[in-house]
Computed example of a mutant assay.
Amino acid sequence: MTFEPEQLGRSKADLAETLRDLRKRAGLSGDRLARRCAMSQSKISKIETGKTTPTLVDVERILRALEASPQLITEVTALARIANTAWQDARALRRKGLEKKQAELADLERTSTEFRFFLLSMITGLLSTPEYARASLDHIPGDHSKAIAKKIARQAVLYDETKRFTFLLTEQAARWPTLPAPAMAVQIDRLASLSHLRNVRIGVLPLAGRMPGCPLNTFTVYDDRIATVEASNGALVFRDARDVSAYLEEFAAYENHARFGDEARELLAEWASAFRR
């Protein structure tokens, strides 16, 4: 399915209106529909007024209860999938201020327990040195000192042992020369150091050897409820369980091929040494 960013803004209202109209055309009250699909009447009301965004499973249950045609089910579930997806435009985020994005990430980290990061081309902020964090924003005009400070402050979450982190870094992500060689060596040393934390697993995916599939994007999965997928001009945020599950499966496939523990640290030491030559 192709997502148009402008669709993502209006789809929730469209979905609510569509489901409400279908119920009325079927001649059912909200209470009767709720009983048919084993939901509460208040949930049906919130869905139809746009206060709650239903999952794909919710929508399918409602459509089956309404005895919708296969074609209608296809059309409405497509709308539901768009409604469960948000587009975060990079230019809009910059206009709001990058420090606000850092605050949003900190809130997401505060409310999540298990984190899975697949890092295709760069090191994420939670693992970066201040120099790397600064360099990662060099291409964006303006003063980003507040955003960088908040990015570094977010790293405190790594020391909360009630939370679990798994980071998978491709060799490209670890070795891409974002900084001068000596500073890159320090950054890679930091990865090795953080890998000793009891609640943090850092896996590396060296270029040598075969890998499953072909990764296209950096992505993060928060618990099993949200997946964020990065693009050069923004990010997609998926909340539907099926979409999140797809990214969990992709992550697991790469995780099975990653090097962890001493094996990962040996590779990191080798890459850091290469920058020190």
Rank of each mutant, 00 (worst) to 15 (best):
M1G: 08
E4P: 01
G9D: 09
R10G: 12
E17P: 02
K24V: 08
A26W: 03
A34M: 13
Q41R: 15
S42F: 05
K43V: 00
I47E: 06
P54R: 02
E60T: 07
A65W: 01
E75Q: 15
R81A: 04
R91H: 11
A92M: 00
G97P: 12
L98Y: 12
E99F: 03
Q102H: 03
L108Y: 04
T111R: 14
S112N: 06
E114D: 07
R116P: 00
F117E: 00
L120Q: 15
M122D: 11
L127M: 13
T129S: 04
Y132R: 03
S136M: 15
S136Q: 15
I140Y: 06
P141C: 14
D143G: 02
D143V: 07
A156L: 07
L158C: 09
Y159T: 12
E161G: 00
W176T: 11
L179E: 12
A185I: 07
D189Q: 11
R201Q: 10
P206F: 12
P215K: 14
N217L: 03
V221Y: 13
D223P: 04
D224N: 12
A235D: 11
A235G: 06
L236A: 07
F238I: 00
F238N: 01
D243M: 05
F251H: 13
R259N: 03
R259D: 03
F260A: 01
R265H: 00
L268R: 00
R277D: 08
